[in-house]
């Protein structure tokens, strides 16, 4: 058995059925790219049994909620994230959960669950991890750059690569693909103007992606403002409670203060 707490949690979350796919920085480790995150991130099955089971596992570690949405299907289905934390063998262990990962549509999420079934340690594959890493953090784009180099499919490499040099090589080998894929990734059009122009296009593309994620987070945080103002009282109420009782208290307090979804979001 691995000594690693994130693998052990994944194993326990998935006792009896697949409920949790390891994502984020710990998935990057399992891709053997780098160790750069000390928090755990999982995509959870969007059903009540899965969420109850995860709370039950975390109860065994004495976890407590951080500010966020409760581990409740009504909020997670609206794209919210839940965050818990506990101390274990000198480590601060943070566990972050979503059921609707950003930038993966419904079909991609269904495919993800199919692909990870029966794996001992299910973790997000390279192509999906690239999408998840299109955040507002510079360091995540370095991870995307290396993930793209590991891809065997030329289309996926061309769509994901962060390297102008790599793309110029791919363009020399697959010129037709560059043209056809430019429809999905307009920065590729800069191939015709040479490496420096392509580098500038990739930089601009990265900035757009970072701003898009910032806007996404800003929208959620704006809607969460009333909940954020109530949080210190909620946290005080939950202090010292077992996680199951804290969860029930948090759900009661979040109803009416934290909308289940962003205004205007599709049902």
């Amino acid at each position: 058995m691995s000594a690693n707490i994130y693998l052990e949690l994944t194993r326990q979350f998935n006792g009896g059925r697949l409920r949790a796919i390891l994502s984020g920085g710990q998935a990057v480790v399992l891709h053997r790219l780098a160790i750069m995150s000390k928090d755990g991130d999982w995509i959870l099955r969007e059903d009540e049994e899965a969420l109850r089971h995860v709370v039950s596992v975390l109860a065994g570690y004495g976890a407590h909620y951080r500010f966020g949405a409760p581990l409740d299907i009504r909020w997670l289905a609206g794209g919210w994230s839940s965050h818990l934390e506990f101390a274990w063998k000198g480590l601060r262990v943070r566990t972050d959960f979503v059921t609707r990962p950003p930038r993966l549509d419904g079909d991609a999420v269904k495919r993800l669950w199919r692909e990870q079934e029966h794996r001992e340690f299910p973790f997000v594959g390279a192509k999906d991890l690239v999408e998840l890493k299109k955040t507002n953090r510079e360091k995540d784009y370095a991870v995307i750059g290396e993930l793209a180099r590991r891809m065997s499919d030329a289309d996926e490499q061309i769509l994901c690569s962060r390297s102008a040099r790599d793309l110029m090589e791919l363009a020399a080998t697959h010129p037709d693909k560059i043209v056809s894929l430019a429809r999905r990734r307009p920065a590729l059009l800069a191939v015709r103007d040479g490496v420096e122009a392509l580098e500038a296009a990739l930089d601009a593309e990265r900035r757009r992606l970072m701003h898009a994620n910032e806007e996404r987070l800003a929208a959620y945080m704006a809607v969460a403002e009333p909940w954020s103002q109530a949080w210190s009282d909620v946290a005080r109420e939950m202090d010292g409670m077992a996680i199951r009782d804290a969860h029930d208290a948090m759900v009661k307090r979040a109803e009416g203060r934290l909308p289940f979804a962003l205004p205007g979001a599709p049902a």
């Binding site: 991870v143 750059g145 790599d166 090589e169 363009a171 191939v191 490496v195």
Partner: peptide, 30 residues
């Protein structure tokens, strides 16, 4: 333009051996 890239564009990888570095060798040695 694309077909000429490898042979004539001095900035293209392969001509000067440079490669974009995202993560360190220690990272990738995992």
């Amino acid at each position: 333009v694309i077909r000429n890239v490898g042979g004539h564009n001095a900035n293209c990888c392969g001509m000067n051996g440079m490669r974009d570095e995202f993560l360190s060798e220690e990272d990738l040695d995992l």
